[in-house]
Simulated scan of single mutants.
Amino acid sequence: MYRILPLILVFFLSLSGATIVSKANADANSFSIEDAVFRPGISDRPGVVFFKLSNISDKDKTLISAQSTSAKKIEIHTHDMKNGVMRMRRLDALTIDANTSVHLKPHGLHLMVFGYTASEDEMSITLHFETEEQITFTPEIVSYGAK
């Protein structure tokens, strides 16, 4: 029975468009991604990615980068208010506490996608963590105004 549980998890992650790649002694069952959406930028403007990232392990995890073969660069961003003006700010890393989730959403945390180069209707993004763990997922591509 205990051997089947990891297989069931991998099956359901594959249905959700997320796959986990594990390096070193990393725990392959550390993350889940839900409601992933990519909104390509209009004209030359950068696009954004929103999703719920859950750390389902009992150790804090730190996201250090993201990449895609369909983009020149992806950065972790947040919004903050300074002197009454909302502005975006790049983050070097994002820590997800043990057994918690972070929501990357409009007017908050998000991934900023620069130089989206794909013309197809699908892209994949790989998140890299300090622990050398990686998770790859395929967000739904949604144009602005569609959802």
Rank of each mutant, 00 (worst) to 15 (best):
I8N: 07
D92A: 04
I74S: 03
L104W: 09
T136W: 03
V113Q: 00
P40E: 05
E130M: 12
V142T: 14
K59L: 13
A36S: 13
A146M: 12
F51I: 01
E120L: 03
S143A: 12
D44L: 14
Q67M: 03
D60I: 11
T69S: 13
G17Y: 06
L104Y: 11
E34K: 15
D60G: 09
A146L: 11
T78V: 02
G145A: 06
A118C: 14
T138E: 13
V49P: 03
Y144E: 15
F137I: 14
T126L: 04
G115H: 08
S43C: 06
L127E: 01
F137K: 14
T69Q: 14
E140F: 11
N29Q: 10
I125M: 06
P106G: 08
K59Y: 09
S30G: 10
G41D: 02
K73M: 04
M1Y: 15
V142S: 13
S68F: 05
F31C: 06
L53K: 07
M123V: 13
D92C: 00
A98K: 14
I76K: 00
N83I: 04
I33P: 00
I20S: 09
T78E: 06
F51C: 07
F129I: 08
Y2S: 13
D92F: 00
F12Q: 14
D44C: 07
K147C: 10
L109S: 01
D27R: 01
R87A: 06
V21A: 08
S43Q: 08
I8C: 12
E120Q: 12
I20N: 06
Q134Y: 00
K23P: 05
D80C: 03
F51Q: 01
P40H: 00
A36I: 02
T95Q: 14
I20G: 03
A18W: 05
A118F: 04
L53N: 07
K82C: 03
S54T: 12
S30K: 08
P46I: 08
F12Y: 15
E132P: 00
